[in-house]
């Protein structure tokens, strides 16, 4: 299936959770927050939330700013 992570198209196996995707991208889950199709997903649900074809996933963290 195809999903969009921060607008970047990526191809994944079916039944992948947000937690698994974060791990595969070698990101630190502790400093990552996620929204799927602009809906915020609570961190407690990352290991249960299964991504679907064409989902748009936003992965965010802190960034420089004032």
């Amino acid at each position: 299936m195809t999903i969009y992570v921060n607008d970047k198209e990526i191809n994944l196996n079916e039944n992948l959770t947000i937690a698994q995707l974060i791990e595969s991208l070698k990101l630190n889950i502790k400093s990552t927050a996620a929204a799927v199709n602009k809906e915020i997903v609570p961190k407690a649900q990352y290991s249960e939330f299964i991504l679907k074809d064409k989902d748009r996933l936003d992965l965010v963290t802190i960034a420089p700013g004032g």
Partner: peptide
């Protein structure tokens, strides 16, 4: 210290935190 919230930059090698 104030920080912004942004999409993760996959090219960024260093972790700001």
């Amino acid at each position: 210290i104030t920080v912004a919230i942004r999409r993760i930059d996959f090219e960024q090698k260093e972790n700001m935190l």
